[in-house]
């Protein structure tokens, strides 16, 4: 969207209620709308179109439920899911029970990821300056851009993505950066573990992921870290944590998670030790 139009829209919104409409007129209009909405129940059914497939998928039964094994992204990490579809429409995501990481479980964010498919703001076409355009236009634009960037070694190109972990896409971006070395790649990850990345770079010299093996630990000490809290690894973490606790309850192994914390977080009861005084000690 251009700056002019953005400002115009903002000014309109800031002006508030349009002139000449008082409270009484507004209520009248609302009452009329309500009364008319009731009438719509009396009319005959509106015409409805049926659009059958051009080439039907094998074994397709209209209205029957089909499951697909797929993945949903959470902060760039693929969460193994089974998607439930009816007539080609996805309606529910469940954890993939055959996947070793989750074992059939999902978290609330992955469940809610389905709603993204039905987001009215989801773009249906490429946009240029806020206006939807045809793919062919984008292809021509990209071709022209590639020629120019080849000459200038990618100067002025900025790529903005969300967090990514797909090896294919990372390899493609790496290839692009080799071709256009002066291009810049920005990752927008406002809720991501930026501090952890910084810390791991300091500790190990490169950015590494955390894959805590709670099931192999005997003592877990967490300093103000909500390790069972929301995040792309919350499902496997919770699973391994529960497994270790089950083992302890069955009398196998010593398992004593302890945590020093300042803010309240999910805390299973039993076998927990909390530092006295909370924040003061930790």
């Amino acid at each position: 969207m251009t700056a002019d139009r953005q400002r115009e829209r903002w000014e309109r919104a800031a002006a508030g209620r349009p002139e000449g409409v008082d409270r009484r007129t507004l209520l009248k209009a609302m009452a009329a709308s309500l009364a008319l909405a009731g009438l719509s129940g009396c009319g005959a059914q509106a015409d409805e179109k049926a659009l059958p497939y051009v080439r039907e998928p094998e074994g397709f039964a209209d209205g029957a439920v089909r499951w697909y094994a797929t993945a949903a992204l959470f902060e760039g990490y693929a969460q193994p899911v089974l998607g439930k579809t009816v007539s080609g429409r996805p309606i529910k995501l469940e954890g993939n029970p055959d996947h070793p990481v989750c074992g059939g479980a999902t978290d609330a964010f992955t469940q809610a990821a389905l709603l993204g498919l039905y987001d009215p703001a989801r773009s249906q076409a490429p946009r240029r300056e806020g206006r939807p355009v045809a793919w062919s236009l984008f292809e021509r634009f990209a071709d022209d851009l590639a020629v120019r960037l080849d000459q200038e070694k990618g100067r002025g190109l900025r790529l903005l993505t969300g967090p990514l972990s797909s090896p294919t896409m990372l390899a493609q971006i790496a290839a692009m950066m080799r071709r256009w070395p002066q291009a810049r790649w920005h990752v927008s990850d406002p809720a991501g573990p930026a501090e952890w990345r910084r810390a791991s770079r300091q500790l190990f010299g490169r950015v590494l992921d955390r894959q805590p093996a709670f099931d192999a630990a005997e003592v877990v000490v967490s300093f103000d870290g909500d390790f069972l809290g929301p995040g792309p690894r919350q499902t496997p973490n919770a699973r391994k944590f529960a497994e270790a606790r089950r083992r302890r309850q069955a009398g196998k192994g010593f398992w004593r998670p302890s945590r020093c914390r300042r803010r309240p977080a999910l805390r299973p009861t039993g076998g927990w030790w909390q530092a006295p005084g909370g924040s003061a000690v930790c």
């Binding site: 039964a61 209209d62 029957a64």
Partner: peptide, 17 residues
Amino acid sequence: HAAAETGAHAGLPSTFT
């Protein structure tokens, strides 16, 4: 109407049919 006996909707034939 191939799905008549198996589906929730009888369905309309595809163009291919």
